[in-house]
C-alpha cells in the first residue's frame, strides 16, 4: 500500500499520550515472550492465510512498540507506516488471547489513539480488514486510496 505524505506531528502531544499509559504498556511490551501463541486467536490472522503481519503481537510490536522506542522522535512517516497494521490489519475486536495475559487489544487501541490524534486514520472497509483489491470502488469513493 502506498504510504501517504507524512504530516507534521505534535511530538509533545504524542509523548503525553504515550506517557499517560507508560507503566502498563511498556511492561507488556517488555514481557511479551515473542512466542506467537496469540496468532490463531485473531480472526483476521486466520482469514489471511496465517500471514504473520496479522498476528496480534506482530501488530503491537510494530506499532506501539516502535512508538515507545522512538518516543522522542515520532514523525509522520512512522505513523503512516503503522497505519495499515493497526487500522486495517486489526479490527479491535478484542478476541486476541495471550497466555501470559498481555492485553493486546488495549495496546493496539492506544497506538490508534496516537495515530488518530495526529490525523492518521483508518477508513472503512479498511477497518474491517478488506484489501484494496476487494473493494476498489468503495475505497476510491472514500478517499482511502487517494495516495495511490
Amino acid at each position: 500500500m502506498a504510504v501517504g505524505e507524512a504530516k507534521p506531528v505534535d511530538k509533545g502531544h504524542v509523548k503525553n499520550l504515550l506517557n499517560k499509559k507508560k507503566g502498563k504498556m511498556k511492561l507488556s511490551l517488555f514481557l511479551c515472550a515473542h512466542c506467537g501463541l496469540c496468532a490463531e486467536s485473531c480472526p483476521l490472522y486466520r482469514l489471511h492465510n496465517q500471514d504473520p503481519r496479522y498476528m496480534p503481537s506482530y501488530k503491537v510490536i510494530n506499532s506501539l512498540g516502535k512508538l515507545y522506542k522512538k518516543i522522542n522522535k515520532v514523525d509522520g512517516s512512522l505513523l503512516e507506516e503503522m497505519k495499515e497494521l493497526i487500522f486495517k490489519n486489526c479490527v479491535l475486536c478484542g478476541r486476541c488471547y495471550c497466555p501470559l495475559g498481555i492485553d493486546i487489544s488495549k495496546m493496539i487501541a492506544l497506538a490508534r489513539s496516537v495515530c488518530r490524534s495526529q490525523g492518521v486514520c483508518g477508513v472503512y472497509p479498511y477497518s474491517l480488514g478488506a484489501h484494496e483489491e476487494d473493494f476498489p470502488e468503495a475505497l476510491s469513493g472514500m478517499g482511502a486510496i487517494e495516495e495511490k
Binding site: K24, L27, F30, L31, C32, A33, H34, G94, Y97, L100, G101, I102, D103, S105, K106
Partner: peptide, 19 residues
C-alpha cells in the same frame, strides 16, 4: 522477558478484556 515468571501470577487480574 523472562519476567513473565513474575507476571504470570498477576497479569490476568487487570487486563480489560473478557479474558
Amino acid at each position: 522477558k523472562l519476567g513473565h515468571i513474575i507476571f504470570f501470577f498477576f497479569n490476568r487480574f487487570h487486563i480489560s478484556s473478557e479474558y
